[in-house]
Simulated scan of single mutants.
Amino acid sequence: MKGLLISGFTAIAAGTGSMLTLHAGAGLDPVHSVISEYAFQSIGWLLPLSLTLFAVGSALIAGALARAGADRRVVLLMVAWGVSMFLIGAFPTDRPGVPLSLSGGIHRYAAFVAFLVMPVAGLLLARARTRYAGALRALSGVALAALLAVVVPYVIRMFGIDLTNDDIPAGVTQRVVVVTEVAVLALAGLSLLRQRSQGAVSPILA
């Protein structure tokens, strides 16, 4: 199990490094530009690389959770998050102003699934009295609140109101969701690693 966790942390760290490099080199406005737009930059290949690494990290930590006897729902939600991350990277969004394509639709709905399932997994882990339960609960709450802020503009546009990302801090709210959810994933793995090192029974058993 320790090997799964270390490999998972390595994948998450590599994914984070790729994402930060992309942000530093692309030169877009992080307040209004959503992360998907970085795919159209010269170093846009770092985006699917980063998301794939996050997906791998999630799969490895989900495997460790399963071995520790965690709630099966948590394991499945972690796997769903990883699959969604992979789909987000594999199916890029459409360029601004272009009608929604099949690739753009898969990208959009995979992102919604990913943004929704990780906070739920974090709340389930917190209810199981796992280590760092307080932090998991707080991060999951922030992620859900930020997800609501991400979804509201789409609902407003459905009513025919012209609202662009330049009118709202769309980039900020989306990044809050991503950062908090990656933190939930990392804390889930870290709680297992700490417990394993102390030679105690896992506190996240279902």
Rank of each mutant, 00 (worst) to 15 (best):
V152Q: 06
V152D: 07
P153R: 07
P153A: 09
P153I: 06
P153T: 06
V155A: 15
V155F: 13
I156S: 08
I156G: 08
R157V: 10
R157S: 07
R157F: 07
R157Q: 11
M158D: 14
M158I: 12
M158N: 15
F159D: 12
F159P: 11
F159W: 14
F159T: 14
G160R: 09
G160D: 07
G160T: 10
I161S: 09
L163R: 08
L163P: 08
T164A: 13
T164Q: 14
N165H: 07
N165W: 04
N165F: 03
N165S: 10
D166C: 04
D166Q: 11
D167G: 08
D167W: 06
D167C: 07
P169F: 08
A170F: 02
A170H: 04
G171I: 00
G171D: 04
G171K: 05
V172N: 01
V172M: 08
T173S: 05
Q174N: 03
Q174R: 01
Q174L: 02
Q174P: 06
Q174T: 01
R175L: 05
R175D: 02
R175W: 02
V176F: 01
V176M: 03
V177S: 00
V177G: 00
V177L: 01
V178G: 02
V178R: 00
V179D: 04
V179H: 01
V179F: 07
T180C: 11
T180V: 03
T180G: 00
T180M: 06
T180Y: 01
E181C: 10
E181H: 07
E181L: 06
E181P: 13
E181N: 14
V182S: 01
V182Q: 06
V182D: 01
V182T: 09
A183W: 03
V184C: 04
A186V: 10
A186N: 05
A186E: 07
A186K: 03
L187D: 03
L187N: 02
L187S: 01
A188K: 03
A188E: 08
G189S: 09
G189E: 04
G189W: 03
L190K: 10
L190R: 11
S191R: 06
S191V: 00
S191W: 02
S191I: 00
L193P: 14
L193S: 13
L193C: 11
Q195R: 14
Q195H: 11
Q195F: 08
R196C: 12
R196A: 13
S197H: 12
G199P: 10
A200M: 14
A200R: 14
S202P: 15
S202V: 12
P203M: 10
P203S: 11
I204L: 13
I204G: 12
I204S: 14
L205I: 15
L205N: 15
L205C: 15
